[in-house]
Simulated assay, not measured.
Amino acid sequence: MAIKLTDLSLRTIDSITKRTNPYTFTIDQISPYAIYSSLRKLGMPNGQVPNQSSQWCYEVRLPQALLSIYEWKLYGCLVDIYPDDQQAASAESIFRELQNLFMHLANQEKSSRSQKAKASAYLLLQNPYQLYLESAEALLREAEQINDQHVQHTFCRSAFFLLLSSFEGLLNLVFEMYSRPEARANEAAYKRTISMPLDQKILFAPMLCMCFTGHSIDFPGDTLQRYTAIRQLRNNFIHANMTDEMRTVIIHEDGYSFLIEPPQTNKQYNLPLVISGLRLEHLHFTKTAIIDMKNALLEAMTPHLRHDFAQALKKDAIIVERTATHYKIHKQL
C-alpha cells in the first residue's frame, strides 16, 4: 500500500527502540532540500542529529514503523527504519514506498524550489584549480612508484593536461568571482569575454576584474615565459596537431635503414616537442610553472581580497555570497 504524507506523524523515538539495530537506507537521488521541504509540512525537525555530518533530523511514526530521517553531509539523506515486526522485508518495502512518496512530492514542488534557488544569494562554487591540481599530483605520485616506463609515460601525459587545465580553471574562477559589474552588464559581450583565448585573458584580467591593484600583472623573472612554453606545447598536444617534430624521415642506403629524427626538445627549457616525450622531470617543471603563475596572480590582487581567495583556493569548493559587485567568500555555510 502506497505511503501518503498524511500517514506520517511526528513522534520522538524512545531510547529503548534506538538501542535496537535499525535498517538503514540511503536516499541519494532526491535532494535533501526536497525531502526537508516535504517533511517541513509536519512541523520543525524533532529528532536529535546523530553526528556532526547532519544538520537536521525528523523522527516520525508510520502505522507499521518508526522512522528517523536525517540529512547526511549535505548531498543525501539516510533513513533508519524500525519496523514493528522487526523484519528486513518490511523495512525494505517501507523504504521503497517512502522513496516513491518523496520523489512524487519533489516533482510537485520543483517550481517552488527553483524560484527559491534563483532568489538565493549564496553559492557553492567548484574550485577547478584545486580539483585539477589534486588529480595531477595524485597521478604524479603514482607515476613515481611505477617501474613500467610505458605506464609511467601514460600517467605523465594525463597529468600534463590536468596541470595546464588547473591554471585555466583558476583564471576562469577569478573572472566568475570578480568580473566588474560593467563587464557583466551585457550578457552576450560577457560570454565573449570569458571565451577569450587564455593569453588574452591573462592580459586583460586586471582591466576586466575588480580584484587587482593595477592594470597589469607583474610576473617575476621568467614565470610567464615558462608558462608560455608549456602552453604552446599544450596547443599542439591537445589538438593532436601533426607537427614537423612528429615526422621522422626514413633513409634506405646500402641495404640498411636509418631514422633521421627532427629536434625533439624546446631549446630554452628542454621541453619535449612531441607528447610521447613527456617524462617526470617535465611534469615537475610544469607544476612549478603553474604554481608560480598562481602566486603571481595572487600577488597582483588587492590585499583584502588576496588572503581570503588564497585560503579558498585550498578547498575543492568555495562558499560565496553574491553582492552587487562581486562574490564574497564565506568560510562556512
Rank of each mutant, 00 (worst) to 15 (best):
S179Y: 03
K18Q: 13
M246L: 10
L259I: 14
K18R: 15
L164Y: 07
F167K: 01
L278Y: 04
S112I: 13
S90Y: 07
Q108K: 13
A296W: 11
T243H: 05
D316E: 15
R322T: 12
P83Q: 03
K287Y: 08
E176F: 02
I194H: 02
L333W: 12
M103K: 12
C211K: 00
T302W: 00
I275N: 03
V274W: 00
I16N: 04
P197D: 05
N172L: 02
V320W: 04
S53C: 01
Q86F: 08
R279H: 06
L10D: 02
E299N: 15
P272H: 02
D84G: 01
P181Y: 09
I27K: 02
L271E: 05
R231Y: 15
P272G: 07
R141G: 13
Q48A: 14
L140I: 15
K4Y: 10
I35Y: 09
Q48K: 14
S15Q: 12
M246F: 05
Q126H: 11
I230Q: 01
P63M: 06
L224T: 08
R11Y: 15
M1T: 13
I230H: 02
N21H: 07
S53A: 14
T20P: 01
L203H: 09
Y23T: 01
V60C: 13
Q152E: 14
L125R: 05
Y269I: 07
M207D: 08
R279M: 11
S135C: 09
I81Y: 06
F175R: 03
N51D: 15
K191F: 12
D28E: 11
K315P: 00
L105H: 12
M207Q: 11
L98S: 11
G221R: 10
D292W: 05
E187I: 13
L162H: 09
Q152W: 05
